[in-house]
């Protein structure tokens, strides 16, 4: 890999300097943290690269049962952090352990996963299920949005002139589980699912369900969440979930898997993930 046309490489010391450099290049520079996506699929119009890993944005902090994660924190950095390991019984680390292989996790950052938000990626599905919030800065100031709001808009355009600074994972009183289907242990998903459940007095009090790589980016099944609330977890409910998901979730084909195959497995996948979340609550 050798990016032609790159004239300068900068090491930004803070957000202001990174924004100033982005502005100076008028769209012909890119921010660089792990660099995994940039190096693999760089835009051809780039003249400048701006390394943002020296700006103090690599951290994981526990706050009120949730997590605040700096945008340039590597996936390995999160996996090795005690607060992250304890967050939701290790749920987020369970997701990250299934992303790529260790050398790539040493490079890839959580901010990169948000900015790239590949449709087949596992992290967006988990962040949607969790209701994660992201914060970024541009020349107009600081901004925040849920990942769902962000990804519904033109987020790639936003991050041509903005610096993603932090990802916040909220506290939940319940349990989450994640499942993916892929060809090999470190391959990207053919389909993935993240589910969260809160159970009170034997019944589901709240539910979060997201399915990704359909082949579209992870999105919530709010109709299923509404259906689940008030029901008692158990095999009968999981069978009902399987049938409803199979009938209602839109899936299609891409070069990795056929729509017919996705249609056949999406119901069992969601039911299995919900069952695992309920088992974590001690109530399946």
């Amino acid at each position: 890999m050798r990016l032609r046309g790159i004239k300068r490489f900068h090491y930004a010391r803070d957000v202001e300097e990174a924004l100033s450099l982005l502005s100076a290049y008028q769209g012909r520079a890119a921010l660089l943290a792990g660099g995994v996506d940039l190096a693999r699929a760089a835009r051809g119009d780039l003249e400048g690269l701006i390394d943002i890993t020296g700006m103090g944005l690599s951290y994981v902090r526990e706050e009120g049962g949730g997590l605040r994660i700096g945008a340039t924190t590597t996936l390995t950095g999160i996996l090795e952090n005690k607060a992250a390991q304890g967050y939701l019984g290790g749920f987020f680390c369970e997701v990250l352990r299934q992303v790529a292989a260790p050398p790539l996790r040493n490079m890839a950052t959580l901010g990169g996963a948000v900015v790239s938000a590949h449709p087949w990626a596992d992290i967006p599905t988990a962040l949607v299920a969790l209701g994660a919030e992201v914060r970024w800065s541009d020349e107009k100031g600081e901004h925040r949005a849920s990942v769902e709001e962000l990804w519904q808009g033109q987020f790639r355009k936003i991050f041509r002139n903005a610096v993603l600074t932090e990802i916040r994972l909220p506290a939940w009183e319940g349990a989450f589980a994640f499942e993916k289907l892929s060809r090999s242990a470190c391959d990207i998903a053919l389909l993935n699912c993240a589910c969260g459940l809160g159970i009170e007095d034997g019944k589901i009090a709240w539910a979060r369900v997201a399915v990704g790589a359909t082949p579209r980016r992870g999105r919530r099944l709010t109709w299923l969440e509404d259906f689940l609330v008030g029901n008692q977890p158990g095999e009968g409910l999981w069978r009902e979930v399987r049938d409803r998901v199979e009938a209602q979730v839109e899936v299609s084909s891409d070069r990795r898997a056929s729509g017919a195959w996705r249609k056949a497995v999406v119901g069992p996948l969601v039911a299995r993930t919900l069952k695992r979340a309920a088992e974590k609550m001690g109530d399946a």
């Binding site: 660089l32 660099g35 995994v36 190096a39 050398p103 040493n106």
Partner: peptide, 11 residues
């Protein structure tokens, strides 16, 4: 361990 093919030398 990192992948040197997608790591910029400047990093």
């Amino acid at each position: 361990a990192v992948r040197s093919c997608i790591t910029f030398a400047a990093k």
